[in-house]
Amino acid sequence: MDAWDRVEIARNPKRKTSLDYVENIFDEFIELHGDRQFKDDKAIVCGLARIGNQNFTIIAEQKGRTTKENIERNFGMPNPESYRKGIRFMKQAEKFRRPVITFIDTKGAYPGIGAEERGQGEAIASSMLQMASLTVPTISIVVGEGSSGGALALGLGNKVIMLENAIYSILSPEGYASILWKDSSRAKEAAEVMKLTAKDLKELKVIDKIIKEPEGDEQESFNTISENLKKEILKTIKEYSKKSPEEIKEDRYQKFRNIGEYKIIQ
């Protein structure tokens, strides 16, 4: 399977979405709405969840599962209010010492007039800054398409997990080909050089863990993935329960501090 195949799998409209996983992984989930400033932008879903007696804050980028839902959710492309809603829930997570689980699945932040007027760049930057400030453990899970700053806004997890067929990249392959080669039809070729697959990203230390996607029966595969994600979440929370709030934050700092290699020039 080449990188482009995975791009197509990650984008398949029938692929399981963030909320499908949330509902399958957690014993309970209750959605809560709004950024308390402007509106409830539905490309990001926030809420509280529980496994056993462990509570979580959920912040999830959500594509629609039907045409109607897709229109409601702006095809999973967040406006600034989505990120500001996320920031509100991160602050509460810190207040109540709840771990934060983010789900990433977006073509990118919405490039619209209103989004620019209301500070899309500021919203993404502030979302990352808020995530960097948390002293509770954070886990980011890339379940489908993780494209550009709109994805990274929720990506500052102590652990970053990726599904085997998900993709995570600086931009869509079409956008990449169009900027670098002035030819968006070379998207396939771009996908191969961009290192956007889970395997490539693990090697680059951009992500920490790959969750396999077994072939065969779709429902069975979905259940297996959910079960393994749940295990990974609980394992990570247990690991971090031994660390102080300061250590949790510093761990995350060092992780992102050390991504990417450079050469020293003498």
């Binding site: 550009s148 990506g155 991504i259």
Partner: peptide, 13 residues
């Protein structure tokens, strides 16, 4: 590529 994207997280942190 993605290494550039990650500089956003690094500088923000």
């Amino acid at each position: 590529g993605i290494i550039s994207l990650m500089q956003m997280a690094k500088t923000t942190s």
